[in-house]
Design a protein around this nucleic acid. Sequence first.
DNA 1: GAGTGGTCTAGACCACCCT
DNA 2: GGGTGGTCTAGACCACTCA
Lengths: 245, 245
Amino acid sequence: MAPRRGSSRKIGQVPLYEMVDGELRQRLLHKTYPPGSMIPSEMKLAAELGVSQGTVRRALNGLVDEGLLTRRQGLGTFVPEIEDRRSLFLFFNMIGHDGQHELPPAELISCDTGQATPAEAERLALSPGSPVRRLLRVRHLRGLPTIIERIVVSEAVLPGLGDEMSLPDHLFRHYERAYGKTVTSAEERLRAAAATVEDAQLLGIDPGTPLLEIDRVAYEFDRVPLEWRCSRCNTAAHDYLVDRR
Amino acid sequence: MAPRRGSSRKIGQVPLYEMVDGELRQRLLHKTYPPGSMIPSEMKLAAELGVSQGTVRRALNGLVDEGLLTRRQGLGTFVPEIEDRRSLFLFFNMIGHDGQHELPPAELISCDTGQATPAEAERLALSPGSPVRRLLRVRHLRGLPTIIERIVVSEAVLPGLGDEMSLPDHLFRHYERAYGKTVTSAEERLRAAAATVEDAQLLGIDPGTPLLEIDRVAYEFDRVPLEWRCSRCNTAAHDYLVDRR
DNA sequence: GAGTGGTCTAGACCACCCT
DNA sequence: GGGTGGTCTAGACCACTCA
């Protein structure tokens, strides 16, 4: 790239730092820098891409703000593994009335395969009837069954999920390690729902008890749907926390 | 301030841009630059504060990211009025199943004064028994009563709230215009609850219907509590949307 | 044309972390 | 000591807005 002073780009052009941002996203998507590894230093990236260190820095800052990279002063810039990133708790927001906040253990109740319903197909961007896998889990908080998770994934995207003897507690980490698929964003819709008979049995409560339903689609780098998860939570002792700034 | 090259600050010192950030926050808090006005240009602030334009810029960027300032290229940097800021919808996240997203009209049902209960005192950082004002409102979506809002404010902080003939729909804007108090952040806790008999009457539903309860404390600049609002929403046709990146 | 924010560069010094 | 990110500066050119 030819050196240039000032902002001499043509009109309609994208800023340089956005091009750097895009290039780095591509490398992350294609695992050029795998999770856990260090990416080249700002100076090296600047030299390689033909821009100044400040421009690389600006792009990196954006990616760091999104949680796609982490920096360690004196060490370097790293691709976080799932447990390092905000994501671990980014996607689990239930907090005890006493302030307790931890990811509770999950018990796998059932796992079967089937054909995508229209609702499943829509959320996972599949054709109706595509093979999907459905998992049913229950999470225990303080020893009490509190959250029911109904998980649906495409058999083509995450083949054989749940065939393992014991499925890990933290599925997002499993997606990353076993399939090389990284969850980077999600959209949640919350509503209230009455416990069905099945819900009531799983949670040890009366049918009709109000539950908090969290309907979430989790996405990979390119907004490719990875998982649909519909959770129902007994909020007798826990709230869903939202901090707005 | 003595000019300096590079980062020659003493250890334990706060970065310059954070000092600029703090100074600007103070000015916003004290309404040195009132809502709707333009603040001095980057160059002027830099000269006044004895730092470079880049350092002012960095501080401004942070405040813009928080929604405390907005920039308009070619014009200047402005203190947003409440309807300009993200806040308008930042604090209203109910979205129709069809994607509709608008602030629905509110009907004031009742307004009375009383002494703060322990729960009210805790959330509003008051002494129990302090005078408070309680408002009860119902919001209509698509013509149907959908959200009950129970609002509590300190009589000392927002005196006479609701004495007006007609209370505006958008209370945060009213706080800013009538009291000079700006809501800048909030903490929400969501849970499921069964409709009480009163809830059921207000919403035209059966008692026991599951409702989404949004328990929210709204804060001023310095994390001073301004309002406690406990909303109960009928989620038959609307969800609470959370977008996670 | 004058003033504003937006982008980009080059170079400096610092604190931190490793070996 | 050498490399990394963190902070700060000075100065350039651009696009945008208004008069």
